[in-house]
């Protein structure tokens, strides 16, 4: 089976500041890859390279065997909500419908088919009852679910998520990971998070990124690799009570 995404020897730098250094990565169908690492380690940059929003300085990226720019509409992207205007006058439904851009056959507005897909996406992320509400009236966790619904309305083959649980209280974060776990049954996913504990439980593979990428075949992350990643000792605290200590370390 051919890989969905391959990065071959990819480096990237802003001006002269190196962000990514010779990164190699392969993503296969049904993967759920979690990428962890410190802030400024290049996590968001890696996603933007895969989306074709940035171009690598050296190396090659192919998505579905093509240049990222040619297959953009087959990917779904969930950005961090913090990056855009939280006071924008828009409803939940109108936000989710934006996922139909580039796919809709309607010249003006959206047609019934688009609305049906938007409704299904909202039902899946449990925001159907909020659809007439303004985005400004939602909590952080609800907004994040709306953005996931918008990405699902794209009918993506791969879903890329940038810190979906940043600025959300742990209870809501937990329910978002449950949602992602369900979605993984049918969609290949790449997830960025600084939340190592959460990530290692829901994903099938973990990669640690701090300019260079270190992949781990299975989910458990040991404290050695985390220390290596952050370059000084950090304490690993597990909030999870369902798994025993031996399972994790």
């Amino acid at each position: 089976m051919p890989a969905l995404i391959t990065l071959k020897d990819v480096s990237f730098s802003y001006d002269d500041r190196p962000i990514l250094d010779h990164v190699n990565l392969t993503i296969n169908e049904h993967d759920f890859l979690g990428i962890v690492g410190p802030n400024g380690g290049g996590k968001s940059t890696l996603l933007k390279l895969i989306l074709g929003l940035l171009t690598p300085s050296t190396g090659e990226i192919s998505v579905f065997g093509k240049h990222p720019n040619q297959v953009r509409t087959r990917l779904g992207y969930v950005p961090q909500f913090a990056t855009f205007d939280s006071a924008f006058p828009i409803t939940v439904l109108d936000t989710v419908l934006q996922g139909r851009l580039g796919k809709t056959r309607s010249l003006l507005g959206y047609n019934k088919h688009d609305h049906a897909i938007a409704q299904r996406a909202m039902a899946e992320t449990d925001v159907e009852s909020l659809q007439k509400r303004a985005m400004t009236a939602l909590s952080g966790g609800q907004r994040q679910r709306v953005l996931i619904a918008r990405a699902l309305a794209c009918e993506p083959e791969i879903l890329l998520l940038d810190e979906p649980t940043a600025n959300i209280d742990p209870h809501h974060g937990e329910s978002i990971y449950e949602l992602l776990h369900r979605l993984h049954e049918r969609i290949t996913m790449i997830l960025i998070s600084h939340d190592v504990g959460f990530v290692s439980r829901s994903v099938t593979r973990v990669a640690c990124l701090n300019r260079t990428l270190v992949c781990h075949a299975t989910s458990p992350v040991d404290s050695d690799s985390i220390n290596h990643l952050y370059s000084n000792p950090v304490s690993v605290i597990h909030h999870d009570t369902r798994l025993s200590l031996e399972d994790n370390l």
């Binding site: 989306l51 509409t73 950005p79 205007d85 828009i90 934006q98 851009l101 796919k103």
Partner: peptide, 9 residues
């Protein structure tokens, strides 16, 4: 609302 997302679509 979100020019980056618009570009991706």
């Amino acid at each position: 609302y979100d020019p980056e997302f618009a570009g991706l679509r």
